[in-house]
Amino acid sequence: MDLDTIWASFINTLAAEEEIVHAAHKKVAGIPFLYVKHSEQNDIDKVIKAIKKASAKSMRGHKLHSVTVFVRSEKNSLVFRHRFFVPQKKMFCCGNLCPDCIRFENES
C-alpha cells in the first residue's frame, strides 16, 4: 500500500468539496501537515467534517485509520496535523484475556 496515492486521493477529494477553496499537504520534520483554505462563510466544524468525509472516502478498501488535530488558523486558512496509519495488530498472547486476543482469531 502506497501512502502517496492515498494522500493524492485525499487531497483531490478534499479540494473538490464545496467548503474548501484549496488544500495541500506538506511534511515538516517527518510530521504531515494539512493546509486548508476555506470560504469566508464556513466555520471550522464544517471544514473538519469535510476532512473526515474526504479521508474516509480515500481510505475505503484499505486497512487504514486517520487522525486529524487542529494546529492553528489565520483568516480563512487552517492548519491541521493529519496522519494516515495502519492499526497495530497483536502478534502474541499476553495472557490478560484481551477481547482481541490472537488466540481467538481463528475461532470466529
Results as ranks from 00 to 15, higher is better:
73 S>H: 13
54 A>S: 08
80 F>P: 01
55 S>T: 05
74 E>Y: 10
52 K>T: 06
85 F>L: 09
55 S>K: 05
75 K>F: 02
82 H>P: 04
77 S>W: 00
54 A>E: 03
55 S>Y: 04
49 K>H: 13
54 A>C: 03
68 T>D: 05
80 F>T: 01
50 A>D: 06
54 A>Q: 04
62 H>D: 10
48 I>Q: 14
77 S>L: 02
77 S>A: 02
77 S>F: 00
47 V>S: 00
82 H>A: 00
85 F>Y: 14
60 R>F: 11
53 K>I: 08
68 T>K: 09
46 K>T: 10
73 S>P: 11
59 M>G: 03
59 M>A: 08
82 H>S: 03
57 K>G: 10
84 F>R: 13
67 V>N: 00
66 S>A: 15
80 F>D: 00
82 H>Q: 02
74 E>V: 12
72 R>G: 07
65 H>E: 15
84 F>S: 13
52 K>R: 13
73 S>R: 14
57 K>P: 08
79 V>M: 07
55 S>Q: 04
69 V>F: 11
58 S>D: 03
60 R>C: 10
65 H>S: 14
64 L>T: 06
81 R>A: 14
70 F>L: 02
57 K>F: 09
76 N>H: 03
85 F>W: 06
82 H>K: 04
70 F>G: 01
51 I>H: 13
55 S>N: 07
47 V>A: 01
59 M>V: 03
67 V>G: 00
77 S>V: 02
48 I>W: 08
52 K>V: 08
66 S>G: 12
68 T>E: 09
68 T>A: 11
48 I>C: 10
70 F>K: 01
64 L>K: 06
47 V>D: 01
57 K>N: 13
67 V>I: 03
73 S>I: 09
67 V>Q: 02
55 S>L: 01
84 F>E: 11
69 V>P: 10
84 F>C: 12
79 V>F: 07
78 L>V: 05
77 S>I: 01
83 R>I: 14
62 H>Y: 15
60 R>M: 12
79 V>I: 11
60 R>A: 15
54 A>V: 00
85 F>I: 07
55 S>A: 05
62 H>A: 09
75 K>N: 07
52 K>E: 14
73 S>T: 15
71 V>P: 03
71 V>T: 10
80 F>L: 02
46 K>R: 14
59 M>I: 07
65 H>W: 10
81 R>H: 15
80 F>E: 00
66 S>I: 10
62 H>P: 08
66 S>Q: 12
64 L>I: 06
69 V>A: 13
65 H>T: 11
63 K>E: 08
72 R>C: 08
82 H>Y: 01
71 V>S: 05
76 N>K: 01
52 K>S: 12
54 A>G: 01
68 T>G: 07
52 K>F: 09
73 S>M: 14
67 V>M: 01
64 L>Q: 06
71 V>I: 08
85 F>D: 04
72 R>Q: 11
52 K>W: 09
61 G>Y: 03
82 H>I: 01
46 K>Y: 10
69 V>R: 15
51 I>A: 13
72 R>I: 08
54 A>F: 05
62 H>L: 12
